[in-house]
Amino acid sequence: MAAPSATGQVPLIQLAGLTKHYGKGESLVRALDGIDLIVQDGEFVAVMGASGSGKSTCMNLLGFLDAPTGGRQFFRGVDVSTLDGDQRALLRRNFIGFVFQGFNLLARSTARENVELPLVYRRMAASERRHLSARALQRVGLSDRGHHLPSELSGGQQQRVAIARALVTTPSLLLADEPTGNLDSRTSAEIMDLLVHLNRDEGITIVMVTHEPDMARYARRVVEFRDGRIVSDHPGEGAH
């Protein structure tokens, strides 16, 4: 068990001296070089840094898409440092919602089918899936677009579908990797407003990777990466 924080609450995420190395010998890359980080429930954290700073690697570890090389990783106080692929898949299935830069929707499935996909792997009955997906689409303001294919939607709408897909399982943690990277500034603001709304009004914990200070402004806490280490950790403008 990880040590409870000062408030006595078990943190959602606790990283202790976490490392991730690629390659070996001379070509060894220390993508993460000893990270210590605690994220509590309800936070909205922006992870910033230049490309190659390790922020994406950290994101992959937080989302259980990859396993760390060393150090300890706790999720709700449980050590998840050394899990195999299927165990990590089950954690993703049950606790994580992903929003990607490139939307990553199934191109030949409708918006509703995309939103229902995580529920299929939870072996949920079709009627219940339909009910939950309709509600998730409503939360992102796309109730009337359920039967459209991604190619029939704008970039902003596609990202909303992706957010609905991430929300539909009511995850403990929403991970957003450059969610506005492919969007124009007006649409970006809309998406960020949606994320802020989800965090503030629905209490969803969000960790968002971005390299744009404009987007990081929305978060309540900003963590900055450089060369595989955290170089600053301060409250963001969204905290006010």
Partner: peptide
């Protein structure tokens, strides 16, 4: 490949 990646990221097991 990309579709498979999405499914795995969302939590599909290898055997699924």
């Amino acid at each position: 490949t990309r579709e498979i990646g999405i499914r795995i990221a969302i939590g599909a097991l290898g055997r699924e």
